[in-house]
Design a protein around this nucleic acid. Structure first.
Lengths: 188, 188
DNA sequence: TCGGTCAGCCATACACCGTATGGAAAGCTA
DNA sequence: TAGCTTTCCATACGGTGTATGGCTGACCGA
């Protein structure tokens, strides 16, 4: 492996994705360019193309990097209302950690199809008493509501990052889901 | 007003916005460029800048154009559940009519602060029995959920445009809101 | 040790983008 | 007719993503 003329070690796609994420977090998605990224890595722009097919794939890789780092609380002992909230908090943490990337992140199916998120949300729905055959669709709705709320929050459409709005949103969903169970057999 | 060398009548910002919207609907937001737009209008690219300060403002104007065309059903006689659904249907119509623009549309405060939408949603919350002091925040949540669902649907994250998922989403919100009223004084 | 192979890197170039600048042309007012 | 304003356009600059093709140095079988 020919080392870069300017760097000691050769590039890796992991390193590229990491630096791209850093740039996005710092200056926004549209400020990211292959040239700037290459400069930041002390490398010729075209060198990136030996590890990443194009910019689209670069962003995809950055999304994967973030998604792979998701850690969701999985406390099956807790009542489903608390689990639901914990799930929301987990997703919100990602949104707040990478607000610039988040709109891009939720605009592709990757996050939605992520196993950890899928299973966690499905588990909550089961605990809430949602009949199995309705779970997939309701879980899609739940996902859409969650990311939609976070997007709106991130985009600054709310007056400001608003913890109370978040609580209100969680409550609204909890109340909504309660009706799907056997009419009131809630835990907590 | 000097007429264009190539066209009969002079440009107008309205005409520019309209054509831009057409291009966006046809080929997507990122396919829109000042040059292509000018070509479509049979005009020199720089001519656009006499009616629109920059591309950012162009998109803003396109959003305003779409928003100004919103027609929401305002049937106060109907039970709030039906009004809520009608509201959702109205917003969904915009999303489905301009799927390419929609993500851009909801990423800025314009739509959220739109009077017609604001008042209609607030009215529904009032009819649902939500206490007045909690209405603004809950209406923000409602807005976020609605646009979030539509965004997810538009982005093709769902298997396909899914009317049943939409119904499920509406039901979930209705159930959620019902808990805010006087515990069960629902119409219809 | 030698020669071949090849992954990794880079220089150049192309087409496209948004738009700053400044000048030409057409209409209105006086 | 003179001047002013509005509209339009030609040119140019610095940025973008990336196609193309050449270089270089590490590895490997002989």
């Amino acid at each position: 492996m020919a080392a870069s003329a300017r760097r000691g070690s050769p590039l890796s796609s992991r390193e590229i994705y990491g630096e791209a994420l850093r740039l996005i977090d710092e200056r926004g998605v549209e400020a990211l360019s292959m040239r700037k990224l290459a400069a930041e890595l002390d490398v010729n722009p075209m060198s990136l193309y030996h590890h990443v097919p194009n910019k689209e794939a670069l962003l995809e890789g950055v999304c994967d990097l973030v998604i792979s780092g998701i850690e969701l609380p999985a406390d099956d002992a807790a009542p489903w209302q608390e689990q639901l909230k914990a799930l929301g908090v987990g997703l919100r943490a990602i949104a707040l950690a990478h607000p610039a990337l988040y709109p891009y992140l939720v605009s592709r199916p990757r996050l939605m199809r992520h196993d950890t998120v899928w299973e966690a949300q499905n588990r909550v729905l089961a605990a809430a008493g949602v009949p199995e055959e309705r779970r997939p669709r309701i879980r899609n709705v739940l996902f859409a509501f969650t990311t939609g709320f976070l997007l709106t929050e991130i985009n600054g459409v709310f007056p400001e990052p608003d913890d109370e709005a978040f609580d209100e949103a969680v409550d609204l969903i909890i109340n909504g889901l309660s009706a799907y169970g056997s009419c009131g057999e809630s835990g907590a």
